[in-house]
């Protein structure tokens, strides 16, 4: 699409949100400072500030006008000094934040590895055989729709306190995503490439190694991403109900101690933790694994250009974000694997 096109018609916006976007092209030749102020980077910086202001305002309202609206409302200072203490290793909880997250991460890692192993086998079977698919299908859907609360409770009852319960919960929450993605990967097998290998008389082992496995990779990766995001949520619930340590247990510790600032501070640590993984680990890994796929980056660029109201604005904003839409939404299916089922990912 050409620049003139974009300028003439701001596309979706003119029907959906007329006054927010339509005015942008008219001001395209505005001062650079104005342009930066209107950029998405500015919005991004504004977000935490606005949140903080709303928070302070809420405290104001609670203390002066409406005192019975809440039980407690901690101040930002309380929360941030709590977080600072945690991050420097001073804590009233039995373990500091690094040990705590370390414990949880280990459980998550073990659970994910098991889920990936079993899920891959079942997914391969379901993709290759209609009968195996008929055998498992409804149960995969049923397990997928099960609230992790149920798993967490069941596992804490079944396995008592310790590592086993949380790990099994991670396996059970993660496994349907792995199965569905692998099945989708098998169903989308690149038959043209198999035919090619056949025409050249390539051996079976080589075909598996160079065609089948690489073609499954994007699906496996999407599976890992979902299993991670969902397994993490399941793990937290499991640790709350059946743990004696770990991140979930610790936030429950602060909850039971009635330290609201502790709960909120810990929740913010959760957010930081998840973002670190999502943005750094998975985006890096994805870049490494799929370096052969230049079109991914190309697509992102195109998307971003489409995002931008005008070409000038696009270049002016030094918003280096790979944070296009798809990335922001957390776990992203590398190739739209699993469609419906997989996207039903973000359960409580």
């Amino acid at each position: 699409m050409s620049a003139t096109d974009t300028r003439r018609d701001t596309g979706p916006a003119d029907t959906a949100a007329p006054d927010t976007v339509d005015e942008l092209p008219r001001r395209r030749r505005s001062h650079p400072v104005v342009r930066v102020l209107r950029s998405s980077l500015a919005g991004r910086i504004a977000f935490p500030i606005v949140c903080l202001l709303v928070w302070l305002l809420a405290i104001r309202i609670v203390t002066s006008i409406w005192p019975f609206a809440v039980d407690v409302l901690p101040t930002p200072t309380q929360v941030f000094s709590f977080m600072w203490d945690e991050l420097t290793g001073e804590t009233l909880a039995p373990r500091n934040v690094y040990e705590t997250f370390g414990i949880s991460l280990r459980r998550l890692g073990i659970g994910m590895a098991i889920a990936m192993a079993i899920g891959t086998v079942i997914g391969l079977g379901m993709g290759l055989s209609k009968r195996v698919n008929a055998f498992f299908n409804d149960w995969v859907v049923a397990i997928l729709a099960m609230p992790n609360l149920a798993w967490a409770l069941f596992c804490s009852l079944a396995f008592g306190f310790g590592d086993v319960g949380p790990i099994v919960t991670v396996v059970l929450t993660g496994i349907p995503f792995v199965i569905i993605n692998v099945r989708e990967g098998v169903r989308n097998a690149p038959t043209d490439l198999y035919d090619m290998a056949r025409a050249f008389g390539v051996s079976r082992a080589d075909t598996i190694r160079h065609v089948l496995l690489p073609s499954l990779m994007p699906f496996m990766f999407a599976a890992a991403r979902y299993a991670f995001a969902l397994g993490w949520k399941g793990l937290v619930v499991a640790e709350v109900f059946g743990g004696e340590d770990g991140a979930g247990w610790t936030i429950k510790f602060w909850y039971d101690a009635h330290r609201a600032y502790g709960v909120i501070g810990y929740a913010l640590l959760f957010v930081v933790f998840a973002l670190l993984f999502e943005k750094f680990l998975f985006d890096r890994l994805s870049g490494y694994f799929f370096r052969w796929r230049p079109e991914v980056n190309a697509a992102d660029v195109v998307e971003q250009r489409f995002d931008a109201p005008g070409v000038a604005t696009a270049t002016a904003t030094a918003d280096s974000g790979n944070g296009t839409h798809a990335t922001t939404t957390g776990p992203k299916p590398e190739r739209g694997a699993g469609g419906d089922e997989t996207r039903r990912s973000h359960d409580g």
């Binding site: 927010t20 976007v21 942008l24 102020l37 950029s39 980077l41 500015a42 995002d307 604005t313």
Partner: peptide, 9 residues
């Protein structure tokens, strides 16, 4: 859809 608000949200 707006760039600024997109960054914000």
């Amino acid at each position: 859809q707006n760039r600024l608000l997109n960054g914000f949200f």
